[in-house]
Amino acid sequence: MRIHVDRTRCANHGQCVFAAPGVFSFDDDENLVYDPAPEATPAAEVARAAAACPVRAVTVEGGPA
């Protein structure tokens, strides 16, 4: 599974952080940080994070079958 966040679209809605806190978070300067290849987080949780993004900044490729 590969995660990509389009930072030109991201507007700090925080929905991905709510949905998959093990993958997405904010640093002290309000920048989104994320694990582009998480191993411990279920694919369904990452999919929910991508679907919840109001500006469709989060894309997910591949993942376990």
């Binding site: 700090n12 925080g14 309000e30």
Partner: peptide, 11 residues
């Protein structure tokens, strides 16, 4: 406001 980082804990 410009502090989304603080929202998850309240949620």
């Amino acid at each position: 406001v410009n502090r989304t980082s603080r929202l998850a804990a309240h949620r």
